[in-house]
Design a protein around this nucleic acid. Structure first.
Lengths: 219, 219
DNA sequence: TCCTAATTTTAGGCAAAGCTAAAAAAATAA
DNA sequence: TTATTTTTTTAGCTTTGCCTAAAATTAGGA
């Protein structure tokens, strides 16, 4: 079976929302995420339900079926593999690859994905630290937490970002923070959630917003 | 301006036909090449004319404008660069890459193409020996000729194929002929156009059909 | 509870890109 | 030249994926 770009995009969006919401995904949530109108979502969701890719109860939201999850995971797998390619092989910057990967993720060829994965050395994570689903659609769970959850004097390795807008990634670059960077919390202000952290030789202040969008792995 | 997959495919097909026919391209010719109905071609051709990508006179066929040619060449450039990538980097066989490149050729990103070209070492030819248009859409003309035009005792280097069906390419593989292979014409039968050729240590018979689909460069 | 507000669905339309069937034009043959 | 065949176009319909506006349902507040 082959699915259209649009169908794949819906499945991907619903997959992400389902994880984030830990349950049924509402029509409006999908419309927001995909930048379309709720009525369009209802249409598509009914078609996807007909194809057994998700379960849909009027007014109650949707849940992906195993089949739907598998397709979504495969699209995400392709997206993230291509991102690795763009950054590792073509030397793109991590904040430039999303749009291109949005297109490449729809290329259909099992063989291509297999060979690309191999060519890239079977990476486990994309350039933003997000895990790459395996060919069966399984995702390795990592014990990462938000930097904002860290306490004073705790130390962690940056393993991912929550937000991945260009502005945010560029901010991180300016501060020399990327995947693998060691971060130490020197101080934390409970009043506004801001922190003083150490990155390499530099010590600086970051706001709560930043800390809430950076994932670290603490040992 | 961005063009749809369909528009790009029409432009590409017309570009090839225009070169082959050395003049106006008829509705039926396009329909044949694209495996659609003439009525669909008429529709699309009118749209492309409205966008100044080709000139169209009812019942008289079409010709690409400079703008149309440039877009077609850029799609062909992408197609051929991706083919190089698939063969050189992912170790695909030259008869397996066409379909995948048909998809990849529509990915939109100037920067991606630039970097891919660079990553591949700015190749001039794709794995089938076809020239890769430069970023401005110019194509290097090579002084290649068909093997069938060679005379007895002439020697050439295989630089391309005319047909590129899987069957034909697989036949060439079996005979150890690929781009760069040296071929010597040992004998030629004028009656049926068949030949006896030498490839490496092997000498064998080939039919006219084969000789008419192999391009060689003679020194 | 009942009423209002928010969410979701339905109904009806639109553009892209294809199709079939019929009409029109061009090309070919007698 | 006229008749027939081929090519091309037109007209009208389908599907996909989106939209707006209106109706239906659910949720929240007094």
């Amino acid at each position: 079976m082959n699915y259209s770009f649009s169908e794949e995009n819906y499945l991907k969006a619903i997959y992400h929302l389902e994880q984030y919401l830990k349950g049924e995904v509402s029509t409006n949530a999908i419309a927001d995420k995909m930048d379309t109108k709720p009525s369009s979502v209802t249409d598509m969701v009914q078609k996807l339900a007909d194809k057994d890719l998700l379960t849909y109860k009027k007014y109650k939201g949707v849940l992906l079926t195993a089949k739907g999850k598998k397709i979504a995971a495969s699209v995400i797998r392709k997206h993230r593999l291509w991102e690795v390619f763009l950054v590792e092989k073509l030397n793109f910057h991590w904040d430039e690859v999303h749009e291109i990967a949005e297109q490449l993720e729809h290329i259909q060829s099992e063989e291509l994905v297999k060979r690309l994965d191999n060519f890239l050395g079977n990476p486990d994570f994309d350039p933003h630290g997000d895990p790459i689903p395996d060919p069966q659609g399984n995702v390795k769970k990592t014990e990462k937490k938000l930097l904002s959850e860290c306490l004073k004097n705790q130390r962690g390795i940056c393993v991912g970002v929550k937000e991945s807008s260009g502005e945010f990634l560029q901010y991180l670059d300016k501060k020399n923070i990327s995947i693998g960077t060691k971060i130490t919390v020197l101080g934390k202000e409970f009043f506004d959630g801001s922190m003083v952290i150490q990155v390499g030789q530099d010590q600086f202040f970051i706001s709560k917003v930043i800390a809430e969008n950076l994932y670290v792995q603490t040992s």
